[in-house]
Amino acid sequence: MKDADKMTKLLAAAKAVLEEDIIPSLPSRKRLSALLVEEALSIALNTTYQLVRQKENETAKNNKVLSNQIRSGVYDTSLDGKITKILSQDVAERLEASTPDFKIHQKFSQYLAK
């Protein structure tokens, strides 16, 4: 899973908001549901963390090699050629894993407190 490292950070941050900001202020009748959500997040977090350890070195190494090749001009003769297929494939996989909706709607969102 690409971007798994970021995923663990995201899940950990979401869990912290739930634990520190939301659960303490919930009425008791809603607290059980929130604690179940917290438990689900913990499981997802642990599973993702395992994936990070398995895959991160390989992905990071491949990205570094490709980046070095691009910077040293290996693809300069055809910057819009084969390399774009490799990059597009990588981005499509990462989007599929994190925000698959974006692939369909392609709309950028904004966080606004109403």
């Binding site: 995201l10 912290a16 990059l87 981005v91 499509a92 989007l95 974006f102 392609q106 950028f108």
Partner: peptide, 16 residues
Amino acid sequence: KLELALTGFKGVQLEH
């Protein structure tokens, strides 16, 4: 912290 982590995920959308 959560907002920052979510912003990190915008990176791949922007790469697309």
